[in-house]
Design a protein around this nucleic acid. Sequence first.
DNA 1: CTGCGCCCTATTGTATACAATTTGCCCACG
DNA 2: CGTGGGCAAATTGTATACAATAGGGCGCAG
Lengths: 215, 215
Amino acid sequence: MTRASEQAYGKIREFLLRGDAKPGEQLTEDQLAHITGVSRTPVRDAVRRLEAEMLLIRNESKRIFVADWSRDDIDEMFTLREMLEGHAAERAADRLSEQQIDRLAEVNSKLHAAVDMDPPNVVEFLDENRVFHEIITEAAASPRLRQVLTMLVEQPVVLHTARSYSVEDLKQSARDHDELIAAFRARDRSWARAVMGSHLRRAFHTFADASEAAE
Amino acid sequence: MTRASEQAYGKIREFLLRGDAKPGEQLTEDQLAHITGVSRTPVRDAVRRLEAEMLLIRNESKRIFVADWSRDDIDEMFTLREMLEGHAAERAADRLSEQQIDRLAEVNSKLHAAVDMDPPNVVEFLDENRVFHEIITEAAASPRLRQVLTMLVEQPVVLHTARSYSVEDLKQSARDHDELIAAFRARDRSWARAVMGSHLRRAFHTFADASEAAE
DNA sequence: CTGCGCCCTATTGTATACAATTTGCCCACG
DNA sequence: CGTGGGCAAATTGTATACAATAGGGCGCAG
């Protein structure tokens, strides 16, 4: 996908992640073409990708809607991520170069810094968090695993809810990363998997609690 | 995807699974349009789907090639299936209706029958096997899980190699299914997961042995 | 007033022409 | 003989017009 198609993908994704469209709302290819400034052809490409990531869904007659995930759906998403990223962490423990581990440490220090700001810079936190996890997924050196994990992308509701996380929650998350780095330095597959597992499972509960509190 | 797009997908997939194109071979959209009898537009849709299933890959300049999987790649595929289908089996154990379990038994009896023919009907075996696993995936009632699993589809080389499986290997596979059905009837999640795990891991070794023998 | 069917409109699907990019070749030049 | 530049051909990307299909509303009959 070159310029137009890639641009459409990026713009629509941002549009969805920012929460500009309500879950369940219908979108049309024409609308999206107008928003992105390209024709329907590349928009259709972008929509296919976003469908695969399940940010968009189609009804029985191919119309396009903004995905609407229940709490159970999100639970299931974290469970799948736990399995797959746990596996990725195991493989990464065998494969990460020292430089890559240093890079993880560097990213995580930025993440700590974002938390320590007043107020905490949650957007920065989420960005660095994504990079951190991507480095691990990449190091797992499994094309299928990577492809599958890109589909289990953060949902708008999760990103939105993250803005109300407590500083303590964010700090704990960064500490998890520290421990993950320690596991990698020790080349301990099982440790890495276990930390990743509890990291993601706690993340789910943090989300669920914040989500309930918001109601 | 309606007629043309769906038709293109089906024909190209069959084309690949039958092994009509060699791994690593380049294909062009025009060629595929000619083969499928539709224009490039729906072909491009179909190619996107087959890319997601990793039956096709693109090089750095977007040209299309038949995927070529190493033994390690296939090992990794079975490992991912083991995790995900193991999880699916757990969920299915809680959710399968009695009728669905009966249907599994019915499908598996056809599978036994296909094995008992002389010579064994391997194509029929593989078809019924796929249906069997799909029923379980469906019963897991997790859209993401289902979507992810459809990507971990059988590779041409696996289907091709299956033709040289011994009758005993095929029988063992059908027996695994019998045990899985027993686990479902007992509503025993752990049992179901364990059987699914060993079933798929053995399937990998059966493949790997047959594959080596062929060399 | 209600239910059914038809038609018009909204929306997605397909074909095709053209644009952009990439590849590979050929030839000039060192 | 090798190497690099540039041109032509092959291939993918985009726009647009038209086709097919689904949905919603309106009128008519009961």
